[in-house]
Design a protein around this nucleic acid. Sequence first.
RNA 1: GGCCCCUUCGUCUAGCGGUCUAGGACACCGGCCUCUCACGCCGGCGACACGGGUUCGAGUCCCGUAGGGGUCACCA
Length: 495
Amino acid sequence: MNEVRVRFPPSPTGYLHIGGARTAIYNWLFARKHNGKLILRIEDTDAERSTQESIEGIIDGLTWLGIDWDEGPYFQSEHAAEHQAAAERLLATGHAYKCFCTKEELEAKREAARAAKTGDYRYDKTCRRLSPEEVAAKEAAGLPYVVRFKVPEEAGGVRFHDVVYGDIERAYDDIEDFVIVRSNGRPLYLLCNVVDDIRDRITHIIRGQDGLVNTPRQILLYRALGAEPPVFAHMPLTLDTKKRKISKRTHGEVVAVQYYREIGFLPWALVNFLVLLGWSPGDDREIFSREELIEAFSLERINRANSVFNYQKGDPKFITDPKALTINAHYLRAMPVAELAPLVEKELRKAGIWKEDWGENGKERAWFLRVIDLIRSRFHTLKDFATLGRAYFDDEFEIEAKAIKKNLAKHPQLKEWLPELADRLAAVEPFTAENIENTLRRFAEEKGAKPGVPINGLRTVVTGRLAGPGIFDVILAVGKERTVARLRRAPALFV
RNA sequence: GGCCCCUUCGUCUAGCGGUCUAGGACACCGGCCUCUCACGCCGGCGACACGGGUUCGAGUCCCGUAGGGGUCACCA
């Protein structure tokens, strides 16, 4: 078999959204699995809607995800001459014809078809019936025309085998004589796409199921152009909870790849989540390293049914599909701390609370890594380190209202106790988890309180949070000095 | 409306005629752990859209119905 060559051809009319990213991921996985090539081709034929900003956004998104390509980006617009030449050839070989029908005429016919409720909106082939003389006359009159492809009028149809959907057959009679060149002389997507795929020697077209109905027409073009059609694999679409196709327009940022970077996702976690939308390895595995995923992936195991991106708009607890969050959290606590550290650093820098001592060769590097490891198991995104975990890194931090209410206000004695505890802890030597624990427990006993009372009060004052890691480790991480200082400030929190 | 595709727990899915009283993951609920929460572990809730066939036997094959999706541009 020849080298596998696949392509990801986004049209640069917005940011990279998760549906597009998923298509790119499947193509990338397939290319990597077969030691093939992934070609990035920007389909910018629609000049009015294409923007440089969008192109950069797409490339930026792919790069962030770790999807690397082997060729390109190529730009469809640079091959306009080639597309036109192909159209000329089709005309010359009798595979296409000029159609002088105006938009208004066509629209009127479609309107009539709608009114007649026949469901037949196909072009009626008026111009296919024109005699050479009539065509010459219209041309001489300078009438504008589009070029239409001559779909065979014989019985039968186009059949092909889709790797995902199986054998597909479409009767010639159901395919209308489609337009391949606009009246302004510019070829349309259907033709451009085929011409580009032939030139780029694409062997497998892996795309969304919305491209399935285009396939028979494209196969007709391949044949007319004398080229062998590639293998097709259509993947199911991603829908929202109302079963609508997800789109930038109606869903906004939650479907933008960029958004996931902003809310603190690990790129690989997103990839891992997206690949599971419509594909499964056939066993129970759901978490994959890059190598494992490439090894496990296959087009044959792509599902045929559309999947739902389970995002409940307006639910503050779930900023995206809960499974995506879970997968991200999994990587956050399972990945090597050394790999996580630079990502946390970025977040702390953004929050303006980064200290150079925590850096690669900083003198508090070990402490920094230890703290990350201590707090990461209850975080879902990288953002959490700078928000929920802020108290470990900076003295300025919010104290949760819930925590004040539950852990402080309910036990007014703590207003006196906490400063007392500060003195006790200040005297602990050496400052070890064991000694801290003994001190705390003895203190509770003396006061006739349950250990949880001073402990949770202390947690609130020291970390600002209702919940967190084991308190003795927390105190050790925050350090004697800061813990004592925060306890001394505690009375101010009581009204 | 025409054509095409799809249909297993709320969501993602396993299942390729008998091993299915349908398995896993997320979410949810309960328990253990415990200073709290999370992690982890244990347990619970929860699905084969419906109706006909075929077969000794159907979630798995066929047909129909219903529902959902895609597409019907001089967009890509």
